[in-house]
């Protein structure tokens, strides 16, 4: 099976004026198979989001290769990538344009993909229903809905062009536990339905254990441990992983 995502020796160095360079991601390599849910855990500043941002080309890598669905996309255009991979961010309200309705936000990618406006409108209604929102949410603005509803809309937007890989960067961290449980259940359901893979970035270790098929632990820009959630959490090999698990209250 061709991996949906292949990361080889990925590196990101940030240069800071007058100071020594900072290596945020240091020689990271991993693969994901289609339909897999891979959890990326680690503390703030460990480089998790930088990896995600390089995959979707929000940041250019300083070194290494990224392949999506068998195709090298290290230097590809964002537009070429966004048909295959979509991202859901931590703060849903901030990821929508405050002056446009949720329906406009969700429909934009369909229009960009060349779908006629009338068809796109119908599709937006269908997408909203698939994430548990009624179609009239299309006419609401981001500030008119709750955080959980807005995150559902953000997931609907990410699903609009049926990506093969969904990246969730702390997508449930700003939500209440009850809403978090709903969103995670929704993601599982959608992954099964679409055969979509999910890179789940999260600092809630218990949540990642319950949701993911496999875990990667990042620390200071490197992957320090890898395994099934139960392997990593029940018999961690690295001191850092032990410390991290020990900190969970």
């Amino acid at each position: 099976m061709t991996p949906i995502l292949q990361i080889q020796n990925l590196k990101k160095i940030f240069s800071r004026d007058g100071q020594s360079d900072f290596t945020a991601v240091d020689d990271v390599s991993f693969d994901m198979v289609p339909g897999e849910c891979l959890g990326l855990i680690g503390e703030s500043g460990s480089g998790k989001s930088t990896v995600a941002n390089m995959i979707v080309r929000l940041l250019a890598p300083s070194g290494g290769r990224i392949s999506l669905d068998g195709e090298d996309v290290t230097d590809a255009d964002v537009r070429a990538i966004c048909r295959k991979v979509q991202m859901v961010f931590q703060s849903p309200q901030e990821s929508f344009d405050p002056r446009r309705t949720l329906g406009d936000g969700i429909g934009e990618s369909l229009l960009t993909a060349g779908r006629p406006a009338a068809e796109a409108r119908e599709e937006v209604a269908r997408l909203l229903e698939s994430v548990g929102l009624s179609p009239d949410f299309a006419s609401r603005y981001p500030h008119e809905v709750s955080g959980g509803q807005c995150q559902r809309a953000a997931i609907a937007r990410a699903l609009a062009i049926e990506p093969k890989l969904l990246i969730c960067d702390e997508a449930t961290s700003a939500l209440d536990v009850t809403v978090q449980a709903e969103i995670v259940a929704l993601l599982s359901h959608l992954m099964r339905g679409h055969g979509m893979a999910c890179l789940f970035i999260c600092h809630d270790i218990a949540l990642a254990q319950g949701f993911c098929d496999r875990l990667l632990v990042m620390y200071r820009g490197k992957i320090v441990e890898e395994g099934t959630p139960d392997e990593v959490i029940q018999s961690p090999k690295q001191e850092y992983t032990k410390m991290l698990i020990d900190s969970v209250l």
């Binding site: 536990v177 270790i205 218990a206 254990q209 319950g210 959490i233 029940q234 969970v248």
Partner: peptide
């Protein structure tokens, strides 16, 4: 009960 059920918990033992 609903609130507590939604809290993710670590499975520390097999």
């Amino acid at each position: 009960q609903t609130l507590m059920a939604a809290v993710p918990r670590l499975r520390l033992r097999r």
